[in-house]
Design a protein around this nucleic acid. Structure first.
Length: 645
DNA sequence: ATAGGGTTAG
């Protein structure tokens, strides 16, 4: 109820203890109206300053600036809050403009806020230096928070030595300035030894100082030392535990991660997100989804980071059901699909082979940055739609979005899939020239793929030899793929030799009812193993009747004939497809994710399975998708939601 | 009445 009594009460409370009231935007809007009605907005710097401060933290910047504009004589308190408001909303230029135009004497709070704004953008280096000079002239540089702000400013803009100079010249230091100096060594110069030296020299340490030191070791990847400091600290707060969780997540120490997490009395959304992210990184996808479900049970509210983490897990294992569920959760709960969440959705859909949904999400995104375009370009490329992918590339350039190295991987692989050799070569040239992007092993792999697929095997081989960097698995994998297509056994053996040396193994997985099942070659460990092999025998029998003969020429050159047939029929992707035939209801699309390329025989067999068993099958391998429907490689209806339609 | 330091993401 917006009764006048209620509003008056709110206003009076605000004037006494402003930070504890006004929790919602509507509270603030009512108060705004009240201040105007009572003309307090013209005279009370106290009321207006506080309103600006609360408006900024509630995301209502327009209320803040309206109130400011209406005030004839704002005092320094009002100015400070407006500068802080702009800074909070990432408008450092506006913050500094307010500072330059203010016609009252700045105080130490003003200097802190403006220096902070200068840290945000490298363009404000000279501005920051001149504010520093002004603080020296007016004596505000002796204020500890001002000097601390300057340490951060110089560390970010001129390096840690310049920051250290300010630190050394400070008249007095407190625990915050010491911790700031420590953090500069950690974040700016990766100098853990100097950070430790500062830590050992500090006259007093609070929980944040201990936390900063833990974070330093975490960033250096030294979890042993991080744990030592963590255990040694006189007290541990939530943030410090989260830092530790992040370290275990980054190091892939999932056991320690879960042990610490489960032992925590209270957790915030960062704790949950860190654990989910760590499980996804550690390829423990089912556990990651389980933790997400645990969040619901424990009434913990997820945020956009949670969604992005879970979605990236879905993308990696091709878990379309879970991904769709997350998408509907986002919509149901009114979360905004911003550039990052949108890209995560697009990426998930396209890596699950659901291009139609990916295109739909992309089309509805308000802001599309490089990463968003990349996910579309990559998505179409991986799904074998090279021309469409290049259309997106050109649209992106028309929109004035600068391509990066990820874009070019997508573009080059599109050219490879579409057989556009000359276009691909042109793009490779353009990338190094016009765009000034240095090629990575990914790009070289794409070029090998481009040449190899087109049958230019000798050129591909020569290209590999001319590479200035060591060829990775992707490069040899591309060459092997080309050898399979063009039946070049000698070159294939060379590629396989390198792949084995680089430690590549074989595996595939499939998602049933939100759970991921993994299969290796000749896998026998799965709980429904007997059923799966029975199904494989049925598959073999039905395919034989349909006239299939295995093309054993290309796999295992040194294996006896029968063993060859056996090994081929237990290739991981076939085990997974067989499991899909058992575990999924008729009419559901069977989606399989594989970490190597699908061999020619499996490709042929799965094509036949899709026909004989009347199932739609999508197999994703390390470079692209294979859609099968009614015995043919199938394409979904992609044009409907396309931005070009 | 307003300030400065350690945590998660496409």
């Amino acid at each position: 109820m917006g009764s006048l009594h209620h509003i008056k009460h709110l206003a009076l409370t605000l004037l006494k203890t402003p930070t504890t009231t006004l929790r919602t935007p509507s509270d603030l809007k009512r108060l705004h109206v009240y201040l105007i009605k009572t003309h307090l907005h013209l005279t009370s710097s106290f009321a207006v300053g506080n309103l600006i401060s609360r408006a900024a933290s509630l995301g209502l910047l327009s209320h803040a600036s309206t109130m400011f504009d209406q005030m004839p004589h704002p005092n320094v308190f009002v100015y400070n809050n407006l500068i802080r408001a702009f800074h909070l909303h990432h408008h450092p230029q506006n913050a500094l403009l307010v500072f330059l135009r203010m016609n009252v004497v700045p105080d130490s709070f003003t200097f802190v806020a403006t220096i902070k704004a200068c840290v945000e953008d490298p363009a404000f280096f000279r501005m920051g230096a001149s504010i520093h000079a002004r603080s020296v002239r007016t004596g505000f540089d002796r204020d500890v928070p001002v000097a601390t702000g300057l340490i951060e400013f110089y560390a970010a803009r001129a390096g840690v030595d310049a920051a250290r100079k300010v630190f050394d010249e400070m008249g007095s230091r407190d625990v915050v300035s010491w911790t700031t100096m420590l953090a500069c060594y950690v974040n700016v110069s990766d100098d853990i030894a100097s950070a430790r030296e500062v830590f050992d020299t500090m006259p007093e340490k609070d929980v944040k100082a201990w936390g900063a030191m833990v974070g330093g070791y975490v960033k250096a990847g030294d979890m042993g030392r991080a744990r030592e400091v963590f255990d040694e600290a006189p007290s541990r707060d939530l943030l410090m535990r989260n830092v530790m969780l992040g370290g275990y997540a980054k190091a892939g120490e999932v056991g320690e991660l879960m042990r610490l997490f489960d032992g925590m009395r209270d957790r915030d959304v960062v704790s949950w997100n860190t654990v989910i992210g760590g499980l996804v990184q550690g390829e423990r996808f089912n556990d990651a989804v389980a933790v997400f479900h645990r969040m619901q049970v424990e009434n913990a509210r997820p945020n956009r980071v949670t969604f992005v983490n879970v979605l990236s897990g879905c993308a990696r294992v091709g878990a379309l059901d879970v991904g769709r569920w997350i998408h509907s959760y986002i919509d149901r709960n009114g979360f905004v699909v911003d550039a990052v969440v949108g890209t995560a959705l697009v990426d998930m859909y396209s890596k699950c082979g659901a291009l139609e949904s990916a295109t739909h999400v992309f089309g509805r995104m308000a802001r599309k940055d490089v990463a968003a375009w990349n996910s579309m370009i990559m998505g179409y490329s991986m799904n074998g739609r090279g021309e469409k992918s290049l259309e997106f590339f050109h649209a992106m350039r028309r929109e004035g979005v600068e391509p990066n190295e990820v874009t070019m991987v997508g573009v080059l692989s599109s050219c490879a899939h579409a057989g556009m050799v000359e276009e691909g070569k042109r793009c490779f040239e353009m990338m190094q020239g016009e765009l000034g992007i240095a090629p990575t092993t990914e790009h070289y792999g794409c070029v090998v793929d481009l040449l190899g697929r087109a049958g230019l095997l000798r050129e591909a081989r020569e290209f590999i030899q001319s590479m200035p960097v060591e060829p990775g698995t992707n490069v040899w994998g591309a060459l092997l793929g080309a050898c399979k297509i063009h039946k070049n056994v000698a070159l294939a053996e060379l590629a396989v030799e390198h792949l084995i040396k680089l430690g590549v193994d074989d595996g595939g997985s499939i998602e049933i009812d939100g759970a991921v099942h993994e299969f290796g070659v000749g896998e026998k460990a799965h709980e429904r193993c007997r059923e799966i092999y029975a199904m494989l025998r049925e598959v073999a029998e039905r395919l034989r009747r349909a006239g299939h003969v295995a093309e054993t020429g290309e796999a295992f050159f040194d294996v006896e004939e029968e063993e060859k047939e056996m090994a081929l029929s237990t290739h991981s992707e076939r085990l997974a497809v067989a499991f899909g035939l058992i575990g999924l209801r008729k009419g559901e699309v069977i989606r399989v994710v594989k970490n190597l390329r699908v061999c020619v025989d499996c490709h042929a067999v799965i094509k036949l399975i899709s026909k004989v068993f009347e199932r739609e099958i999508v197999v994703r391998d390390r470079s692209r998708f294979h859609h099968f429907k009614e015995g043919r490689p199938a394409m979904q209806n992609l044009v409907k939601h396309s931005v070009f339609a």
